[in-house]
Nucleic acid binder design. Structure first.
Lengths: 202, 202
DNA sequence: TTCTTTGAACTGACCAGTCAGTGCAAAAAC
DNA sequence: GTTTTTGCACTGACTGGTCAGTTCAAAGAA
């Protein structure tokens, strides 16, 4: 990579980082381009030199962030498979990977959840694509688990995948927002227990 | 109730209904007071006659909506207890009640999830109170279940409650947004299966 | 020379909140 | 029974401010 494009890349990254926290805190519309530029330490003109519009900056942010998440989920699943682990172990590893991701990028997660179920917004189609990528990783592991008999063939794959993702997402955001004192291991243990059905019974 | 105050109440209700769908679709900042007034079929001045500000309208909306939700969850739990059901059955009934609520007020749920984990917003303290009310209902049932030996005493009550609420919330929103063809029974069955630990195994 | 960034000034659309005034139903006065 | 008054609910044009996006000359970097 030549120096110029890496210089540009550095500017873009600074803008992503500034935008993601501001938008997570305040929402898209309430965040001004002037604020983003100031937080990133660049001039306003630079924002428009690097991105077509505020909306485009946001859409690229979404793509970038979900790309990181799916890569991390897939890596967790693949690694478990490579070690000869079961599919349930793979799901457990993915829960862990999800928690680590949210711990590292809480602002992005917050913003993603806030936008995901909205309708009639400019970036709706971007989100749809990007969501499907993430959920598909979980669905694949569920499907494999059913195929090899490890999971009940009566489970509803798309709904169960959505529920699992939701469970992790909401538990993690709650942890970050309202229960900061808990460790990631506490949260992982609670979710793992639900996944393994070790909630009811003694 | 005299004609005047019932007239006022009707206007307020129209404003709630208009605001909830618009804000769910577009977010708080992107929704203008003019839009809300137009959708409600009243003049802009009427909004300010009935509410101190746009923010206050929104806060009252939040209180109103979460009030409905907690009432419905509590009713489900109480009814199960009255019929001599177990705590796990009560949790199951609450999942059902949550789904029914979301099915009936999808816009409100959307808006609640979008705002819940934001920080630095004017209505943050309102949300904190209102969230705690809702989660507390689930925590109570979990605590009772642990006390009578129905649930493992190793579960982490606050985290498990958050995870359960998240599971229902996200699965239901996903159902509404991306899997409309499924029936409420399908969704309930999938979530119930997770709650009962009937996912893994044959 | 070429690419990137700066920074400040500017435009025009948009929007929260205001306020002087209207309509109307019920109470008060006669 | 009719007229007058009261005050609540509502109206919509208007104001002051904000913000996305533009422009551009100049500077810095490679």
């Amino acid at each position: 990579m030549d120096t110029q494009s890496s210089r540009r890349q550095a500017t873009r990254t600074k803008l992503y980082e500034a935008a993601v926290t501001l938008i997570a805190e305040q929402g898209f519309s309430a965040t001004t381009v002037d604020e983003i530029a100031e937080r990133a330490g660049v001039a306003k003109g630079t924002v428009y030199y690097n991105f077509k519009s505020k909306t485009e900056l946001f859409e690229e942010l979404l793509r970038h962030g979900v790309g990181l998440l799916t890569a991390s989920l897939r890596a967790a699943a693949d690694e478990t498979a490579a070690r000869g682990g079961t599919r349930v172990q793979a799901l457990d590893a993915m829960i862990r990977a999800g928690l680590v991701f949210i711990d590292r990028y809480p602002a992005f997660t917050q913003l993603y959840v806030a936008e995901l179920w909205r309708t009639n917004r400019a970036w709706q189609s971007t989100l749809l694509v990007v969501r499907q990528e993430a959920v598909a990783v979980v669905e694949t592991v569920l499907r494999e688990g059913v195929a090899n008999g490890e999971l009940s063939d009566e489970i509803d794959i798309p709904l169960t995948a959505a529920a699992l993702v939701g469970m992790v997402l909401v538990a993690a955001l709650d942890w970050q927002a309202f229960q900061r004192e808990r460790s990631i291991d506490d949260v992982h243990a609670a979710l793992s227990r639900l996944l393994h059905g070790r909630v009811s019974g003694r």
